[in-house]
Design a protein around this nucleic acid. Structure first.
Length: 424
RNA sequence: GUGAGCGUGGCCUAGUGGUUAAGGCGCCAGGUUGUGGCCCUGGAGAUCGGGGGUUCGAAUCCCCUCGCUCACCCCA
């Protein structure tokens, strides 16, 4: 390969046929679980008006400035490849007047998202998420439902020993006070605050102080005030109610004060689900309540809660834990042929089988029958059909069951009924 | 944006200065006349990411560059 070959752009990956065993399995399970909980699918465009994310995420953050794919299109409009699912769903909710639909509205989506990050384990520039949004219900029972859906889906695809991390970051009523308390706590111990990043965070994004990985910061974090201990009455009621609901559902949780969201429209419940062997970027599910978002987007207020589930990370977890998902055995026919006329007949037969609903592939041309049957094994065909001059003149074919190593000569017109799915 | 590690045929790997870069997997073919999966034999396929340098001589040493990976930053 002397001239450099093209390769997939940094941070993207081809999903090869072998991978789709897992993908197909996950997507089917996700959709099934969503439907079971009464959610309906909503797909939004891959790109949006850049201002949607500027508005929802904020202009000053690294996120919008450096970590999105944002560009001017040929007509001069500034567009952004969607980095997350919640804002687009809310945009669609407002655009289509979905507040006129029966509330609460339960929606799910599945598809690609884009983040201009340096790739590392569990972090890609094109990633895929399954997510749900429940809009129009402020009660904590909805928080519990959303969490339960995520939990049951992960269990259903075979990921066990997961941990639910839970926190409440309050609302515009109580959060400012909490942040003040956190700040003054850190200022009171500023001599211990030796970590440069954290000195900066104290000014720019104090909640993130709690999430620092630097060893020097851990003693400070351990004694820092937690937001759940500084909630206003309404938020505390919501919080306590949520804990009761989770217990009633049998969902174990771990209260984690490090769990925060930096943006103002997030309210109250914040949660993540993490796998047992936690690497740095291993969070499988991240979600939370966003009662302030609709207003930020210029609509009338509507409460909402949802989560995004990282499909690549989930699939990594599945593969770490177990072998390949077994493929359903199904009929797949390789049609072998010897000679020119038999080949034409083989092609015709393939067409006939396909139209009858049976997967059929003609053998590669110009190969010995031995080689053709080797090919049949290699592509995991369940049957081989052999057409030669003999069969041609007799209007028959040889049907070989490759698993059983048995074959018989049958008339062409019964072939489809022998192979096809049993009529119900 | 910062830092570290790595880069040999499609995949995995051996080879750390000296004749035509070795092996496994995979791929293709053959093992007698129309028959698979195992096995055997053979074949195709890399100039060792790219460029420059050191040397009589480099995949093996040095520099630059590109790429990959991991971590930091950020985490919607």
């Amino acid at each position: 390969m002397s001239p450099p070959l093209f390769q997939a752009p940094r941070g993207t990956a081809d999903i090869l046929p072998a991978q789709h065993r897992y993908w197909g399995h996950f997507q089917a399970m996700a959709e099934k679980m969503a439907v079971r909980f009464g959610y309906e699918r909503l797909d939004t465009p891959i790109f949006e008006d850049a201002r949607l994310f500027v508005r929802s995420i904020g202009e000053v953050t690294d996120i919008v400035e450096k970590e999105t794919y944002t560009f001017e299109d040929r007509g001069g409009d500034l567009v952004t490849l969607r980095p997350e699912g919640t804002a687009p769903v809310c945009r669609a909710y407002l655009q289509h007047g979905m507040h006129n639909l029966p509330q609460p509205l339960r929606l799910f989506y599945i598809g690609p998202f884009f983040r201009y990050d340096r790739p590392q384990a569990g972090r890609y520039r094109q990633l895929h998420q399954f997510g749900i949004e429940a809009i129009g219900e402020a009660e904590e029972s909805m928080d519990a439902e959303v969490i339960e859906l995520a939990w049951l889906l992960l269990e259903a695809v075979g990921i066990s020993e997961i941990t639910l991390l839970l926190n409440s970051i309050g609302d515009p009523q109580c959060r400012p006070g909490y942040i003040d308390r956190l700040r003054s706590y850190y200022r009171s111990r500023s001599d211990e605050l030796v970590h440069g990043d954290c000195r900066r965070r104290l000014e720019t994004n104090p909640l993130r102080l709690l999430d620092c990985k630097n060893a020097a910061c851990q003693p400070l974090i351990a004694e820092a005030p937690g937001s759940v201990d500084n909630l206003c009455d309404a938020c505390n009621e919501h919080w306590q109610g949520l804990l009761r609901h989770l217990s009633a559902l049998g969902l174990p949780y771990q209260i984690e004060k490090r769990l925060v969201r930096g943006l103002d429209y997030y309210t109250r419940t914040v949660f993540e689900i993490v796998p047992p062997a936690a690497g740095q970027q291993s969070t499988l599910v991240a979600g939370g309540r966003y009662d302030g978002l609709m207003e930020v987007l210029g609509g009338s207020p509507a409460p909402g809660i949802g989560f995004g589930m990282g499909i690549e990370r989930v699939l990594t977890s599945i593969k770490d834990r177990q072998g390949p998902v077994a493929r359903e055995p199904r009929t797949k026919v390789l049609v072998a042929h010897t000679g020119e006329e038999p080949k034409a007949a083989a092609l015709a037969l393939c067409s006939e089988l396909r139209r009858g609903g049976v997967a059929a592939v003609p053998a590669p041309s110009g190969r010995s029958l031995k080689s053709q049957l080797r090919y049949a094994s290699a592509i995991e065909a369940s049957h081989a059909v052999i057409i030669g001059e003999d069969e041609l003149s007799k209007h028959t074919v040889t049907l070989r069951d490759l698993a059983k190593s048995e074959q018989q000569e049958v008339s062409r017109n019964v072939l489809l009924t022998m192979l096809g799915p049993t009529p119900t």
